[in-house]
Amino acid sequence: MADYDDFARAQLPRLLRYATMLTGEREQAADLVQDVLVKVYRHWARISGADHPDRYVLRMVTNGYLSWRHSRSARVIASGDLPEEARADDFASDHAAREDMWQRLSRLPKRQRAVVVLRYYEQLPDSEIAGLLGCAQATVRAHAHKALASLRNGLAVEQMAEARETR
């Protein structure tokens, strides 16, 4: 199984970063990827023969995230309390804006967050995202649209941009 080890070592950094973006938590990301590595080992004969084992494993991480931690809780999260609207000058630093965005991302429903991560972090086209999630491209676009709408809600950076445009 040397090739399994080689594959795992080569893919792990990317998978762990991806899982971190999905889960938002280091421990959960480690847990999620660890589960996937064990499953990959169990089915290595089949996975290693796939056309794109890396993409297959990325899908396993995605499915693990969506299924195990996926839920109606996502809806609860989405409808949870949003931070109070902030004034533009509250975000004096980029750091603050990113922290705010990170919190907003954590409130997205799981599938919407997966689409956002795949689109803006993995930078995959919608067609590939649809393949990974097992849904239509239109569904991906719908998730992305809803996610961006949620993320924009009360976002100071948008207010700043709008303010600049109206000057």
């Binding site: 990113r98 965005m101 990170w102 991302l105 803006y120 961006l148 976002l155 950076v157 948008e158 941009a161």
Partner: peptide, 10 residues
């Protein structure tokens, strides 16, 4: 910075 760039930076 637009929201998409902010997401990427985040």
């Amino acid at each position: 910075m637009n929201i998409e760039n902010l997401i990427k930076d985040t």
